[in-house]
């Protein structure tokens, strides 16, 4: 059958929905101020902040909705919200 029998789906399918297009403000990560505490990664409702080898946060702008929670909660003010330029 071509469609998921009984309306089912396999993991990973939500990634087809690039919620980054919702964004009005964009979080800019200031690595110099970052202490790698991980707060932004823990609280991001999209789960779209990863980390690089140095432990610095790497946002996935394909999915970031620009809610600003990470910037608001960052204890070292290392994230700034900037108006998205389209």
């Amino acid at each position: 059958m071509a469609i998921g029998t009984g309306c089912t789906a396999r993991p990973g399918k939500s990634r087809n929905n690039k919620t980054g297009s919702w964004r009005v403000f964009r979080p800019e990560f200031i690595n110099e101020k970052c202490t790698s505490c991980g707060m932004c990664r823990i609280i991001c409702p999209e789960g779209c902040i990863g980390e690089n080898e140095e432990g610095l946060p790497v946002p996935d702008y394909d999915y970031c909705k620009g809610c600003g929670l990470c910037a608001e909660e960052c204890p070292s003010e290392a994230i700034e919200m900037k108006k998205e330029e389209k």
């Binding site: 993991p11 990973g12 939500s14 990634r15 087809n16 929905n17 690039k18 919620t19 919702w22 609280i43 991001c44 409702p45 999209e46 789960g47 779209c48 996935d60 394909d62 999915y63 909705k65 620009g66 809610c67 600003g68 929670l69």
Partner: peptide
């Protein structure tokens, strides 16, 4: 719990 869901920005339920 993957990205691409349609919760409002800043949604506590998604968190």
């Amino acid at each position: 719990f993957d990205s691409g869901h349609r919760a409002c920005g800043g949604c506590a339920a998604a968190m």
